[in-house]
């Protein structure tokens, strides 16, 4: 992997091929965790860690894995990293483990992990797969943090639990509920596609 490829992977995962608003993966957790910024931060860190390491491991073992059990082995590898994370949090950071509750276990079912393992790690060397997993996690992270920022601010009038809204602010209960994440993701999708289309047009115009 040279620096040009690395940059390409980074840009793709953060923007042109973003797991949330282009690949539409990992939407379940986007709906569930984004009503509080603090939960979102920990969840996205967990996903980033798990995606990077599971992609790296899948890539290391790719020539050994029999094709017919490929996906089962991938899920096994993902579960390994997620459960290790869960065990370590429970032992060393019990407070964070408590506030995350069942979310950590749910990382296993996050489609981004499987998507990257199948779509990238299976056909690329370990270092590139690790970088791809890491940047996919970051692409997921920035979109979820954006959604969570608006949902927590409008839904509770707080940010990271600190009250920031002006006095007399009436919280929007809909922002606390899962459907509002659909509206938020839809809006982000619309904005990003528009920016991409405008750039494409500008490029086309010059050429």
């Amino acid at each position: 992997m040279n620096s040009k490829q690395a940059k390409q992977i980074l840009v793709d995962n953060l923007w042109f091929n973003n797991p949330i608003f282009i690949q539409i993966l990992g939407i379940c957790s986007t709906l569930a965790v984004t009503n509080l910024l603090s939960n979102t931060v920990i969840m996205t860190l967990g996903v980033t860690f798990a995606t990077a390491f599971s992609s790296w491991t899948v890539s290391l073992l790719k020539n050994l894995i029999p094709r017919r059990v490929r996906m089962i082995v991938q899920v096994l590898i993902m579960s390994f990293y997620v459960i290790i994370l869960d065990i370590l949090l429970k032992a060393y950071l019990p407070e964070i483990s408590k506030s995350l509750g069942p979310y950590v276990g749910l990382i296993i079912t996050n489609c981004i992990l499987m998507g990257r393992a199948e779509g990238f790690a299976q056909g690329n060397p370990p270092a590139a797969a690790f970088w791809d997993g890491l940047t996919s996690g970051l692409g997921y992270m920035w979109v979820l943090l954006t959604v969570a920022f608006f949902r927590e601010f409008l839904g509770f009038g707080t940010l990271m639990g600190y009250p920031v809204a002006p006095k007399g602010f009436v919280p929007w209960t809909i922002m606390v509920m899962a459907p509002s994440a659909f509206f938020m993701v839809g809006t982000l999708l619309w904005i990003s596609k528009n920016i991409m289309a405008a750039r494409e047009k500008a490029k086309g115009g010059k050429a």
Partner: peptide, 13 residues
């Protein structure tokens, strides 16, 4: 392969 890989990942857990 499935046996070995499962053993290798589950043992550390």
């Amino acid at each position: 392969f499935t046996f070995i890989v499962t053993f290798a990942f589950v043992l550390p857990l």
